[in-house]
Design a protein around this nucleic acid. Structure first.
Lengths: 241, 241
DNA sequence: GTCGGGTATATTGTATACAATTATACGAGG
DNA sequence: CCTCGTATAATTGTATACAATATACCCGAC
């Protein structure tokens, strides 16, 4: 939710604020800035050669994206994702991706349908070759196509928000096991349900796809990666209430 | 989504930015600033006796809340809600309020349960007396209690976002007919399902509660209020793509 | 040694000046 | 009369100076 149509400022590559925003987003998602790390206005400004003003404004946008949290008079901190957060997000996504698939069955365009089929075909190819980066990229793109196909700016934006939010976690697990193949098979089933016009089936399959993705993450080390921070953040929440 | 824990800055009543933010939010929700109206930094600043800086930052927060949209180098505009947006939101809320009720069945505290019962009792009282403002207030509060009871900061924040977003529309319709009574009866049923520990029933009732609320809005003039803007915004979307 | 206060320092918050961009008005040319 | 272009005004974007706040450190009292 929130601003569900960001093409104006998020794609604003030409203002300093826009450039700072995009750079910081990339650096957070890539892991250059770690969870709970403090971002200081002057340091970032000097590094990028701009004053504090555009940095401050970029901070607000990053907060809007959920990537940092701003505490008044204190600072900006990279958002931590707890294991509980991830679980909640997948629970929510399970429902909403299902809704999205159901709506997309009615609304998907010919071009979107074709891109979806191509996506699945390509993912199989890269899976055979073991190209992990491309697999992750195509997996992201599959979901984006689905979001765009549902013909609801609000649902699309909400799902993209959640999707981006778990990206840091998701990429790690997708690349470490055989989930890629199974995931793409599920994509194919969803695609075929949509193609055949069976909205109910598409919804059900999309629901299950999220549940499977989450179960796989739990099996493959979600706890190890984020378990410690879960406690840390819990403490953080209580003593600032 | 986005920053799902805003108690730090949203409750920041003491900074100028926080005050400007709260004031503007109230003015937008109350209808002082109409849909698609342009908000100018200097004008707002002068009116509130502050410089442009805190106004600009408040603008970013309002964008974060989805109340305005900022177009680079042009201006900030009050967000328009189309009939389609409202429909989409209620579709999403139906699913998520259901999930929320299901989770709350397990997690609700004794205090929350008591406040919920009191809320329903009071709503009946004010319904008898015809106190429309209090009824709307209690309706809002019922949902907030439910959101807080689900024990998921993410789901709570997401639902509060959507809830606030349709507030401008919802209040108008709730106050104009007999939906208040029916709505409170549905609240009671949801509460009783939660109290009896029947999570599945609570979910189903909460689902239906949203569907009923939306149907009622459509029956009672949603089109008349927002139909015109729907077209306007549609145009807006296409020619800025 | 520990606790408390106070000063110094670092960091964020706000105001203002200036630059860049966009909108408006007006006049020349067709 | 219309159109286009230029000049002017209005508005947002950015940098910087200063204020307020929080943090860290030191020092003295107990």
């Amino acid at each position: 939710m929130t601003n569900y149509d960001k093409k104006y400022d998020a794609n604003d590559k030409y203002s300093l604020r826009g450039r700072v925003f995009q750079r910081l987003r990339e650096d957070i998602l890539s892991g250059k800035y770690k969870e709970h790390e403090e971002l200081k206005e002057v340091a970032i400004g000097e590094e990028l050669g701009v004053s504090r003003t555009p940095v401050r404004e970029a901070f607000r946008q990053l907060e809007l994206e959920g990537l940092i949290r701003i505490v008044p008079n204190k600072g900006a901190y990279v958002t931590g994702i707890t294991a509980k957060d991830v679980k909640d997000i997948y629970m929510i996504r399970s429902l909403l991706e299902g809704l999205c698939a159901r709506l997309a069955t009615e609304k998907i365009s010919k071009e979107q349908m074709e891109e979806m089929e191509e996506n699945i075909y390509l993912a199989d190819f890269h899976e055979d070759k073991g190209h992990l980066d491309q697999i992750a990229e195509l997996d992201n793109r599959f979901h984006d196509i689905l979001y765009e196909a549902c013909d609801s700016k609000l649902l699309e934006h909400t799902l993209k928000d959640f999707h981006r939010y778990v990206l840091r976690v998701r990429q790690k697990t997708l690349a470490t096991n055989t989930r890629g193949r199974a995931s793409n098979d599920e994509h194919r089933q969803i695609m075929e349900a949509i193609k055949s016009g069976d909205a109910g089936l598409a919804e059900k399959l999309a629901n299950q796809h999220m549940i499977n993705a989450y179960d796989n993450m739990v099996k493959n080390g979600l706890k190890e990666i984020y378990g410690e921070n879960a406690e840390e953040s819990a403490k953080e929440n209580t003593d600032t209430k």
